[in-house]
Design a protein around this nucleic acid. Sequence first.
DNA 1: TCTGGGGTCCTAGGACCC
DNA 2: TCTGGGGTCCTAGGACCC
Length: 410
Amino acid sequence: MGTPFLHVDLDAFYASVEQLLNPELRGKPVLVGGGVVLAASYEARAFGVSAPMGIRQALARCPHAVVVSGEFGRYLEFSDQVMTICHDMTPRVEQISVDEAFLDVSGSVHLLGSPDTIGNLIRTRVREEIGLPISVGIASTKFLSKVASGQAKPDGLLHVPAGHEVEWLHALPVSVIWGVGPVTERALREAGIETVGDLANTPSDLLERRIGPGAGRKLRALAWNRDPRHVVLERRAGSLGSQSALGRGLVAEDELGRVLLAIADRVSARLRKKGRAGRTITVRVRFSDMTSATRAITLPMAVATTAAIHHAGLALLAAARTDPTEPVTLVGVSISKLEQAAPLQLELPFDEGDPTRAGSPAGADQLRIDEQIDRARARFGKESVGRASVLLDPRRRSVPDEFRRLAEKD
DNA sequence: TCTGGGGTCCTAGGACCC
DNA sequence: TCTGGGGTCCTAGGACCC
């Protein structure tokens, strides 16, 4: 097998952009975020700071860090510029977040040179034309290229030589594997499994007893570098949601209802913008002790209006709160089983009194109201039209709305 | 004054059908 | 009276990723 996969990953992306835009920040520990650290520069990481850490804890570890709230619109611009450079190398680019992408360069080597040449070209161009550090991993599978870019950081390139993949991988800790988080890592350590090599050589029955048959088989395959995945050029989102943290928490039903309405409004606007509608509505609530509960309902027909999502959400919210005196510290709404929304579909699923039930013309009215609001917001700005009761207290928002736009990016 | 906001995937049990 | 096996859909929870 050759080495067609590159994984490119911008280093400490938001913090690096801040240092690029503001030379005074270069060489200094920089934290981007508000209540929590969204990104920490490598100078800050040297003090044990990492995302997502509470900003107070981060400042306790690194008191001289500079905290900036972030210019999220700019991050998207830089991200697009980097992706444009990637597309100059091959059309086969799979962007997986604002700051990283997989490239399949198997069709480009005859034009541009070896994968190493292409990787170095990307690094040089991103450095010289944009001014940002980026790391590149090169390997025979997607999985391994991502591990390699992680090992190359910061600001490096690492090519895992063909034929030596397994040997190289087996020396690394299990935590490098995509899918091994804190819980799995602890479970593995308790079984004496610390390196990928340990994992690869653990009998499958023992492994599957520890972490379950599905995860066991998956990790075993990756530990032997068996990763069948290809670069996926376009993928459709399977769900779409929004959530809001509520500080120390809310108890009053009417206050929670207003928060829910604001979230339903945001979700439905994004759905309509994408021309999609969904059948399953899920509400998640989190309590002060960080436990959470979810309740879901699947409707007979896809919906996309604020009223429908809000209506179903209220019932789900009530069902999720088994103890109504327990403060709710987060409310989230997600919609899944998404379908392409023919205009007619959006209008059908409503019923007077119950906008989630199929039937009557009330839904068409709701849709027209939503679309007028969409148009007014497009023309006069997001804050121009609110449902008066829904606006969240800005003091309670721990992350700027701009960050939502960044996270929403497809 | 602990812990954001956007997602994906997996598991497990129950309902229901053939 | 007791009772199969496979498939699909739904719900709830949880781990994980950026």
